[in-house]
Design a protein around this nucleic acid. Sequence first.
DNA 1: CCGGACAGGTGAGAATTTCTCACCCATTTG
DNA 2: CAAATGGGTGAGAAATTCTCACCTGTCCGG
Lengths: 296, 296
Amino acid sequence: MSSNLPSLRGLAALDALARHKRQGAAAEALGISRSALSHRIADLEAELGARLVTRSGRVSMLTDEGTALLAAMGDAIGRIEAAVAPLQRRLRQIRLSTVNTLAANWLLPRLPRFQRAHPDMEIAVLTTQRVADLDGEDVDCAIRNGMGDWPGMAARLLFRETLVPAAAPGLALGRPSGWPVIRARARFRDWPLWWQQAGQKREAPSGGMVVENRAQALEAALAGAGVVLTDARYLDTHLAAGRLRVLGPVIELDTGFHFVRSRAPRNPRNVEALARWLEEEGRSAPQAGWPPGASD
Amino acid sequence: MSSNLPSLRGLAALDALARHKRQGAAAEALGISRSALSHRIADLEAELGARLVTRSGRVSMLTDEGTALLAAMGDAIGRIEAAVAPLQRRLRQIRLSTVNTLAANWLLPRLPRFQRAHPDMEIAVLTTQRVADLDGEDVDCAIRNGMGDWPGMAARLLFRETLVPAAAPGLALGRPSGWPVIRARARFRDWPLWWQQAGQKREAPSGGMVVENRAQALEAALAGAGVVLTDARYLDTHLAAGRLRVLGPVIELDTGFHFVRSRAPRNPRNVEALARWLEEEGRSAPQAGWPPGASD
DNA sequence: CCGGACAGGTGAGAATTTCTCACCCATTTG
DNA sequence: CAAATGGGTGAGAAATTCTCACCTGTCCGG
């Protein structure tokens, strides 16, 4: 049983050469240099002590022994490739868990740029309403909203949360104290916070409509139902398209969106690349020259 | 097509582990250390980005992914092993071409010792009456009889040819000039040569029986048909067994047995080992304390 | 409950394999 | 004949793989 396994690379080289006839083409198919393929074949021949290919004029032909060897192997190499392929595909993928609103309004619009820069990776965005507990789920990393002080995991701040009021352009509005505010049930403290920090003199408006979460709140505002208070970054595309306008100053909260990686990501290198890119995006995006269109 | 092939060693390690349940046993089956196997598994897991084995208590079990991987591979590893096996067997083998007489009387009696020292090699002795032309035949090396000046090949002298007369102990003999000599047709110059160099005063005996070759001549002498003149080294076993006795001095010729290797031996390392051993044997064997039993 | 035997994991460093680069040589072809 | 094409080679960098020595965790008998 203690047989000396030959080099799989060498066998693959022989196989490719048999198919493509030329070393150049075979090498390209394997993604290695012509020289490497030549070495691989030569080493295999030395390892097995037999000539496997002959060069007759322009094309490389297999010897009888080479042909017999490949025939005896059958599609063993293909089998191995196929067996490993699903795992490798999963490896190219990065599973990123995040909340709905951030995904729809900040992440997804930017992702195509990352894809273009890293065509070898594939990002699967898993939007979960509640924050996924990282090591439980099949997830490599996540963007989480909070203070960044989660025990036992290194969180990297992407950007602080902000709050800014916005409404559809067509909506007729009076004084701020009379705004028809939209509240998200999960974020009922946002309006008082903004009201206080934005230095409004009058009382905060009470009443208004209440929806389940921020995504719905944004939808409501887009539909002209009232004034939404949400993160500045969620507004980018809507402001640019003229679907919303800004109604007051941006305030910054002490919570923020953080990048966290699971304890054992499948492919740490790729996850790291994504992390760096997200950090860059988080820094570069707004702040300077914000809000984009209006100055109201 | 430019798929990243996984390490065959790693897959083999996984396969062995699945069969043997314990790393120790699996490692032994593969002929590597436990540590190496552990590394191999760990690296494979990193390479594929998935846990493939779990250790539950004493035994290592494959995870679902590990099982699936092996199942998908089928017997690919076995196929590769089997495909390569015949070539590797041929590689362990050294084909040595030599003449009949030397093989029977000098080489074959010594070979078992070499085999014991190198159990990983296998020597195929091809006895050919005529000298094989090396590069034509499927032979790695040869022992040739001559002056050692063959053009284009490096000959390594094993020992000079010698000539010594011998006969069966029971044979009644008179003076040398009356010996019933046995002549090999291919070596009709031997008797005059010995007669002259051994300083015999009388005439060389004429007549006697003539056989085809030296092997037959030796056979004839063993059968008590007369006095054979042959190489001292061919007599070793027969003298020791008392089947022949020496009748005169040993003379040394200017021809000798040489080791020559074919232009491209399958396994140069093994051939070199054989060459060294043969040289050693050629030097060490007789000379000192020869002839073994008699002093006649 | 402790200590030894057993099984596996780890880090360092040596050995081996694999790759690319920069050349070379041979054959074909314009 | 010269350029183009295809293959081979040696050196050196990079990676893979191995062993060794040592660690950790589990199991079992006293």
